[in-house]
Design a protein around this nucleic acid. Sequence first.
DNA 1: CTTGATCCTGTAGCCGCTACAGGATTTAGC
DNA 2: GCTAAATCCTGTAGCGGCTACAGGATCAAG
Lengths: 143, 143
Amino acid sequence: MDAITATRADRLTIGKLSQLTGVNIETIRYYEKIKVLPVPSRAENGRRVYGPMERRILAFVRRARELGFSLDEVRALLRLGGPEKASCREVREIAVHHLDDIRAKINDLRKLERLLTKTVAQCTGTTAPECPVLDILDAQRSK
Amino acid sequence: MDAITATRADRLTIGKLSQLTGVNIETIRYYEKIKVLPVPSRAENGRRVYGPMERRILAFVRRARELGFSLDEVRALLRLGGPEKASCREVREIAVHHLDDIRAKINDLRKLERLLTKTVAQCTGTTAPECPVLDILDAQRSK
DNA sequence: CTTGATCCTGTAGCCGCTACAGGATTTAGC
DNA sequence: GCTAAATCCTGTAGCGGCTACAGGATCAAG
């Protein structure tokens, strides 16, 4: 490998960064626009140039998104993990809050699942006079 | 109650319909625009007039949305529950497919919950050298 | 030297609403 | 009867979190 011309870890094009992190090129530019990612430096030809630091940040963002954090939360986490560290308590607060959201969502979905399962089960036989799925949507008002 | 001037169940304004179904006025008009609801008749003054049938349909839509069906699915369900009945099998298919989606979502969220719970737990003590939440976001690549 | 890959900016679209603006009526209180 | 507030109308723009173009510039490989 040529040490000068080879793509090195500290001179990434947006395409390489996209490959390495699994984040869409358009999404990377979008993150820059909404200030989730820092404005990168540019090569002489005007193209974005990324280093290992940017790569780390983007990987972090991706992971956080996978875990369901909103972009607002991601921005907050990045701020807290930044220069002024030692704010683990605040990070924890964001995470705990997010965890509450997740648990609430799981609960809701489980209720739905039970109701739908029950309803669809009645549907198995061809004996039903009317469609129980439509009925439950129609009539059911009780929780 | 005056039988002529009183608000009767078969001559609803959009406001009454909204109250009765719990669906926002703007949302009702939006549903009309995207053809989830049929185009209602109009009074002489140009205002929308709804009858009990429309109310039933809207209640159905609301319920289906609460159960997480997409508007596309709702449209399909309405079509199936319409004039050409006897398509319970198709309704069932939509419902089962939706149920699969819900179960997959629950699974994903449960995984997240476990991971986040574990991580936040490490955060309790003030003894941690670095913030485990940020660490897990940073480093963890394993499933 | 040409082709195709990659990059650039900018804008519009997706879902399912929600929130206006700016106007026309209608209803309620006095 | 009159005024003020409520309700209705149409139309457009915004939210989050992207994705998909259009229309161009530039780069790398054969």
